[in-house]
Each structure stands twice: as C-alpha cells, then as structure tokens.
Write a protein that binds this DNA or RNA. Sequence first.
DNA 1: CTGGCATGTCAACACCTGTTGGCCTACAGT
DNA 2: ACTGTAGGCCAACAGGTGTTGACATGCCAG
Lengths: 193, 193
Amino acid sequence: MTTEASAGGPRRTSEVTKAAILEAARERFASDGYERATIRAIARDAGIDPSMVMRYYGNKEGLFAAASEMDLGLPGLGRLPGKHIGAALVTHFLDRWEADDVLTALLRVGVTNPAGAERMRTIFAEQMIPVAAGVCPDPADAPRRAALVSSQILGMAIARYVLRFPPAVTMSRDEVVAWLAPTLQRYLTAEGA
Amino acid sequence: MTTEASAGGPRRTSEVTKAAILEAARERFASDGYERATIRAIARDAGIDPSMVMRYYGNKEGLFAAASEMDLGLPGLGRLPGKHIGAALVTHFLDRWEADDVLTALLRVGVTNPAGAERMRTIFAEQMIPVAAGVCPDPADAPRRAALVSSQILGMAIARYVLRFPPAVTMSRDEVVAWLAPTLQRYLTAEGA
DNA sequence: CTGGCATGTCAACACCTGTTGGCCTACAGT
DNA sequence: ACTGTAGGCCAACAGGTGTTGACATGCCAG
C-alpha cells in the first residue's frame, strides 16, 4: 500500500516489511485464531518468505506478542462527564472494535491460547481497572466493577463480532449504546457493596 | 468409573466406550479448543486407540457435534415469577456452567471454529429466544432482548471461566447474581423500544 | 572498485495431525 | 466345536506445521 516513491527499486526497508507482517498477522489472528493462523499464510499475505517472519519476530509467540500490542486509549475518559461515562465507554469500545482487527484477534486468541489470555488479563489490569478507580465511589471496589464492565463489553463483542448472533449484528450502534450504557453506568457508579 | 460387575472380563460394550470418548472429548475441547484438542489425546484419555474414535464418530467434526449437544434446560423458567426471572436466569446459568464442560467447550470452540459458531447460533435461536419471547412485553423484540441477555451471560462466562480475570473469579456466586440479575431483568422486561 | 551488511529466497528437517485399512481376539449363537 | 461378529490395536499414509541454515542479491561506505 505505502510503496515509497523515493526507492522505486525492488528493495524495501525493513520497517515497511515488518509493518506489512504485523498487519497480515493481525488479520489472520483475528479471523482464524492462534492455531489456524499459520506463519506461512501470514507471510504470503505480506508478500515475503516465512523465514523473514522468524528473522524479525523470533517465533510465532513473539509475532503474536508484537501484533497484539494494544492501547485502549481510555485514560481520556476518566475526567469526562461522570453522568454519561457509560454511554461514552460503549461508544469508545464500538469504535475501537471496528477500527482494526487487534481487539478481535486478542479475543479470539485469548480464548484458546494461554499467552493470549495472559495478555488480556494484563490489558484488563492496566487499562480497565484504573478507569473504574477514577469514577467509582470506593476505589477498593474498582477491580470488581472493572470486571463487570469488561464482562458486558466482551460479551457484546463476542455476540456481535465473533459468533455473529443475527439480532446482535442487526442492532444499530445507537441501539447498542442505549441498552448497554445504563448497565455500565450502574456497574461503575452504583452505591451498595 | 462405571465398570459393570456382570462382565468382569476385558471386553466392554460399545456404549461404555462411546460415553468415555464423549467425556474425554468434552474435557479436551473445553480446555484446549478445537484445534489443540487432538483425537490422539482424546483417545488416550478414554483409554482406547484413536481409530476407535473414527469408527464411532466418523471424523473430528462428527465427534465435536456429538460432544457439544446441549440442552440448556431453560423452558422450565418460562412460567416462573416474572419479577425474579433475572436472578433465576443468572443462577441457572452459573449452575449449568459449573456442572460440566459442555458450555465451556462450546464457547472455546465457537470462537475459533465455524462449525462451533454455528452450533452456538442454533442453541441461541432455539433455546434463548423462546425464553425471551415468553416474558418480554412485545414478542417481536424477543430476538434482540435474547441477544442482550446472551451477551451479558457469555461475557461473564468468558471473564470468569475462560480468561479468568482475577476479580471475576474471586466474586462469589451471590455477588454475581446480585450484579447481573437487574441487568438481565431490564434487558428482558424494560418497556421502551 | 570492493567489501560488508541488509533484505530476501530456497530447501529441508523433525514433528504432529486426521484418517485409513488390515489384523487380532474374545465372546455369542448354532 | 465352529463360526460370525463386535471391540480393539497397530502401522502407515499424506499433508501441514514451526523452525533452521545455507545461499543469493542489491545497496552503501571505504
């Protein structure tokens, strides 16, 4: 896609190739999961030899680690209107989920691969709990509230983007936001326990 | 486990073997997913030769189809107290999820395998939508409401039993019920749209 | 002009997979 | 006693996997 005009020759810089590999890897991991996303297929998509993947990322696990690096971009929401934090969260995640394949790849791999699950736990601990801690009444509850929020978000993602339950796919963005926002709002800000 | 006293000999009936295979298959599919649950490993767990699996179930897909047959046992809930349907649903699913490995296997496989996803869609359509239709105000909304309910239940299952987010694992059954019941109640019975 | 390094390909290894067909053996019916 | 059949094992096939090392080739520095 981004073939630089300066070097019209057949040689490309390693950064370009590495980026192409990462993009192909994300697509394959997202659509096939860890086991069925073969290095050969990823290399073919990236237009290079499989051994290049090994050279740049060591092994398949290293490739996945690089391809699944993810910044949810949530901290900005911490200081938003506390009352509409639920709707903002749902909207943000729908955007993130449809922007690229990283979250879908993460979910598909996390469910069957131990390393993928560990990666998801890390993202949860480092990026979801702080958001909850910033808005919930008692910071000691933050982990539990973050888990509840994550469960609803992951569940909708599975139903809509992975298992493709027809009603979940058909629903409009606004409908999803309207239904889920109050749930997240309650999980984050409800008082008792 | 159930070695019959009548035939103390080395020979067992095919039904016993088939059941042993199914049990081993459910465990392997639940813990490893479709691709990494090898027929060789399943046969080893069942104490027989891999070729027996083929003889009884044709191929790996047939084995999964047999191992993932699932009756959620929900119809009984249809005529229960309409007000506490949310709590009853959460409790019921927590029971079902912890009773055996079938639901976990179904979820793990459904996320990476097309046939598994199709099986989940069928179960959703045949067993979840009718329940929603029986309790929600306008039966035309049943599919959407069932999808919302399923999203929250699947999400909690993933967080608690698959990805094992620590706070989701630590939460007691009663806590999970207390938090999720109002959500499901609203998804099923809320009036607007 | 000539090294050296970076980018890339090719061929192969060792292993594991689903799946198949042939062979053995103990039991039940006659 | 004999035989058919059901339950079971063994060895192998064909294909795909991650991974490795040797070899080629274009580019830039000296």
